Every structure is written in C-alpha cells, then in structure tokens.
Computed example of a mutant assay.
Amino acid sequence: MKFLYILLALLGGMMAGIQAPINGSLGKKIGSVEGAFTSFFIGTLFLTFFVLFFGKGQIAHLFQVPKWNLLGGLLGALFVTFVILCVPNVGVALTIFAAIVGQMVISIIIDHFGLFGVEKIPMNASRLLGLGLMLAALFFIYRGSVSS
C-alpha cells in the first residue's frame, strides 16, 4: 500500500513540474500576483465542485481546528507566487529542484523534531548524506543553467 502513496506523490510532483511553466507563462502575460490568484481561483472552483459531489460532509469542523492548520492555504499561495516569479527568470528545472531541496530541508527538520504532530524520525547519517547530495545537485543544476 505504501507503494501506491509513493506513486501518488510522484504524480503530484510531476503535476507541480507541469504547473510551474504553465503558471510562469500566465504570470508573464497577466502579472505574477494576478497569475497566482487566477491559478488558485481555478483550483478553488475545482475543489468546490469536488467537495460538493465527493466530500464527506466534514467542512463544518473547519471552525474547530487549531488556527495554525489554516496556514496551509497561505503557504500554498506564497509557493505558487514564488514559482511564478522564478520560472521566467531561472527556468523550470532550477525552480522546481530548488523548491524540492527546500522542501527536503524543512521536511527533515520537521521529522527530526516531530513538529506539527508528525511522528519523530531522527536525523541520521543517511538522511544527512542524501540532503548533502541534493544540495550538490542543486549547485550543478544551477551551474548548468547559467549562460556561458
């Protein structure tokens, strides 16, 4: 069953990779913040339909969750805005890989300390080496992206 979730995460990552140049192009045509707004508006329309027809009726519990649980939307909006700003300036590959490295850095910190209620997974040599290799890869992708 874990394999299915890994495939879903892989598919989600591929969607983010496709979303970046689409949103970058949109942002160049209508403005970065306007592009982010449009992207989230279309997403909101889709999710509204999805909740109405496939939701489990738990939306009323929204007012009972800790307020920090509501930051995900803000963080998602900032992420999309940052990607829209970066893609036209540094390219899709460098933008997405830098974002992934950023996600890995914060994810390892979150795991290590068990932040936000997740299970603690301590830092170890394998995780540190993997992160170091990703940082090295980011450097080489950056170098390969710089005009000669």
Rank of each mutant, 00 (worst) to 15 (best):
V105H: 05
A93R: 03
D111F: 06
L70Q: 05
V80P: 04
L85D: 09
I109N: 04
P66W: 09
A77G: 15
G76N: 12
E119K: 15
L138D: 00
M123G: 04
G132W: 02
A60P: 03
E119M: 12
S147G: 11
Y142K: 07
M134V: 08
V65C: 00
G114P: 10
A93M: 09
I110M: 10
L62Q: 09
L70R: 07
F79L: 15
F97P: 03
V90H: 00
T95I: 00
S126P: 01
G57N: 10
C86V: 00
G130C: 00
V65K: 12
V65W: 05
K67G: 03
N89T: 11
P88F: 09
F79V: 11
L71V: 13
L94Q: 06
V65G: 08
L115G: 04
I110E: 04
A136D: 03
I110N: 05
L78V: 15
V146N: 05
E119C: 06
D111S: 07
P66L: 12
M104A: 12
Q103D: 10
I84R: 03
C86P: 00
S107Q: 04
T95Q: 09
I59C: 05
M104I: 12
N89M: 15
P88M: 10
L78P: 03
G117K: 06
Q58Y: 15
R143F: 06
V80W: 03
G102A: 06
D111E: 14
A136Y: 07
F140W: 08
I141E: 04
A60G: 13
G117L: 10
F139Q: 05
A93Y: 00
L129T: 13
L78N: 08
V80Y: 00
V65N: 11
L131T: 01
L115R: 09
R127W: 02
G144R: 01
P66F: 11
L78K: 05
L128M: 14
C86W: 08
Q58P: 05
V65L: 13
F113I: 08
L78T: 14
V83E: 00
L135P: 02
L85F: 13
F82H: 02
G130V: 03
P66S: 13
V87D: 01
P88D: 10
F140G: 04
V90C: 09
A93H: 01
